[in-house]
């Protein structure tokens, strides 16, 4: 990477924040290199949104130092605001204005001038496939269209550091892919992206580095591949025809989790070709009739069970 000498786009050191007695962020350290995508993973209530709100100057920190785009968030919040763009979890569009008016509002607030502002509006509407809906009030937009408009408004100011708080939560698969495509294009232009998500798949698609947040602490930090390697939980799921088949398969395949009601068997494994061939050969040898086979790679549930096992069980025990 050629960016080793440039200062990090985001750097936080010992970031703490609590609300009343509840500690939400408990000493967070991380840096994000310019032009890269960092994904912060975590369950609801893990502190993701609080982290984003602090990074985007909406909230103050109790302790620790945070620099965004080279500026300290506490000392120079305005310099930070000039460099960032934020698309929050809840859509930040003006529902009473049309899509085009929302974009022109942003153009005016960035003092782009009438001609440039209009040209950028047309361009962004086109890029986000909103041209047809440009003159309809944003309140009539679907969830996916609102999110796209939201992102388009954020991009009007050409931010150098972009914060996306759960950008695809609640979106249909097509809109999700649209958002991913847009984010990739931005990163190609050198924008730094800090995103939070509940979906490992999303982090996998977009992020250069992933951090896992649990109870206000970063419990893992690495590339998606590194993270997945640390995560057990991959398994092969077999659907058997009857109870006898299930008994036979369980005997042949060794330690596995069986579900007698659903007639399924979960065999640990990462779905590698060798292991799969071996498994099929053994089933074949014993004439076991499998009606369906599926391979499950680790998902966020597995991530949490692996990285935050104890606390997850505690939580389950309490509630």
């Amino acid at each position: 990477m050629t960016t080793t000498h440039s200062p990090p786009a985001i750097a936080m050191n010992g970031l703490r924040r609590s609300f009343a007695d509840h500690v939400v962020l408990d000493g967070l350290d991380l840096t994000v290199a310019p032009g890269t995508v960092f994904a912060l993973l975590g369950a609801n209530g893990a502190g993701k949104t609080t982290a984003v709100r602090i990074l985007t100057t909406l909230l103050g920190a109790d302790a620790g130092s945070v620099r965004v785009a080279g500026h300290d968030i506490a000392a120079e919040p305005d310099a930070v605001r000039a460099a960032i763009g934020v698309t929050g979890q809840f859509s930040a569009v003006d529902g009473l204005l049309t899509g085009a008016e929302n974009l022109r509002l942003m153009a005016d607030l960035h003092h782009l001038g009438r001609v440039t502002g209009r040209a950028r509006t047309v361009e962004l509407l086109d890029r986000f496939e909103l041209t047809e809906a440009a003159d309809k009030p944003a309140a009539t937009y679907s969830g996916g269209m609102r999110r796209k408009l939201d992102l388009a408004m954020t991009l009007m100011g050409e931010p150098r550091v972009l914060f996306l708080d759960e950008p695809t939560t609640g979106l249909d698969p097509r809109s999700r892919r649209d958002v991913w495509r847009i984010v990739r294009a931005l990163v190609a232009d050198g924008v730094t992206v800090f995103l939070t998500t509940q979906y490992l798949e999303e982090a996998d698609e977009l992020a250069d580095r992933v951090g896992v947040l649990d109870h206000g602490r970063l419990v893992a930090d690495g590339t998606p591949a590194e993270l997945k390697r640390r995560m057990p939980g991959g398994h092969i799921r077999l659907q058997l025809r009857d109870g006898d088949g299930l008994d036979a398969a369980a005997r042949v395949l060794g330690p596995s989790a069986r579900d007698d009601e659903a007639l399924t068997l979960q065999v640990p494994g990462d779905g590698g070709i060798g292991a799969l061939k071996d498994l099929l050969a053994r089933l074949d040898r014993h004439d076991i009739d499998v009606t369906r086979l599926s391979i499950h790679t680790p998902d966020l549930d597995d991530v949490f069970l692996a990285l935050t096992g104890n606390s997850a069980q505690e939580k389950a025990g309490v509630s």
Binding site: T56, T57, L58, D78, R81, A82, I84, V86, G88, F90, S91, A92, V93, D94, G95, L109, D150, M153, T154, G157
Partner: peptide, 13 residues
Amino acid sequence: TEGIVARFRTMHI
């Protein structure tokens, strides 16, 4: 109550 004011707060205005 609308998200748009949160957006204004994060902008250099």
